[in-house]
């Protein structure tokens, strides 16, 4: 029963990826330029950190290789989580504009169906960037590469759950697009800074309210020390963020007020 349900969702995911890919290819130039722009944008930030670590080689135990790993895992995880689940990134706007109506008329679980509904070209650029720098700059052995893949999926789960958290705000506050966006930028900022820079109460915040610790902290430790317990905690944290995100969405859905704006699916 569960197995056939999972298979059915995998088939649906394949169908959505095929459809979204066709749509991206309808505007091939825009797709390539967006993906490339994101690749270059990430590259600029990484170059800044490389320069920084060339002046100060060790900061609280972190070296240049760690910051490359950090950027690889956060870009690839963010890219994977958003490339195929882009609707969740815009969830707050969708809720406040009443755009869930169409999705609620299909016989599929709302969260996975909504999540799969839209792809992002820029997030594909992030995904490619993460893998590119990890393979080219870190040059991992097979074991590290396999662990990297496992952690990229966990980080993607963190971002999916986090998007559900911030998107669900719109159910409770009505108009929550700005708040949701600010929360997103805080998450991105802390996910791309070395986790060693933060201590005390800030560390608590980074494993709760802004769960960037599961992106820029534990996964980097897991890869640097080849530490399975850090990898396991990353996964536990990712699942906790996802489950709490799904719960806040489902609870919020009871307060959904729909809307009457004109709309097309694009």
């Amino acid at each position: 029963m569960w197995f056939s349900k999972i298979l059915s969702y995998l088939r649906l995911a394949r169908a959505y990826i095929k459809l979204n890919w066709s749509m991206q290819m309808e505007y091939r130039g825009a797709f390539v330029s967006q993906a490339l722009a994101m690749f270059l944008n990430n590259g600029t930030w990484l170059a800044f950190w490389m320069l920084f670590f060339s002046r100060f080689p060790v900061i609280k135990g972190w070296e240049q290789a760690d910051v490359v790993t950090l950027w690889a895992i956060s870009a690839a995880g963010f890219g994977l989580g958003n490339a195929f689940c882009w609707n969740l990134h815009n969830l707050a706007a969708m809720v406040s504009r009443g755009e869930l109506d169409v999705w609620m008329l299909y016989p599929r679980s709302l969260i996975p169906h909504l999540a799969l509904g839209k792809m992002s070209a820029t997030a594909i650029g992030d995904l490619a960037f993460g893998y590119f720098i990890y393979i080219v700059m870190v040059r991992p052995d097979l074991q590290h590469f396999l662990l990297f893949n496992l952690l990229v999926v966990a980080v993607a789960v963190v971002f999916i759950g986090f998007n559900l958290w911030r998107g669900s705000l719109a159910f409770y506050f009505g108009q929550a697009e700005v708040l949701s966006e600010q929360w997103f930028f805080a998450m991105i900022t802390f996910s791309t800074y070395p986790n060693c820079l933060f201590d005390g109460w800030m560390k608590v915040v980074l494993y709760t309210l802004i769960p960037a610790g599961f992106v820029s902290g534990l996964p980097v430790e897991a890869l640097r020390d080849f530490d399975f317990s850090a990898a396991a905690f990353t996964w536990l944290g990712a699942l906790a963020v996802l489950i709490s995100g799904a719960a806040s969405f489902e609870l919020g859905l009871r307060r959904y007020q729909s809307g009457n704006l004109l709309g097309m699916r694009s």
Binding site: R108, M264, S266
Partner: peptide, 25 residues
């Protein structure tokens, strides 16, 4: 819903039909 479409704007109806068939199993 006359004001809300279930077809994908940038794709032909045929592709939307294929996807709907998958959604409804």
């Amino acid at each position: 819903f006359g004001q809300r479409s279930q077809l994908w704007l940038h794709l032909p109806p045929s592709d939307s039909f294929d996807l709907l068939a998958e959604i409804y199993g």
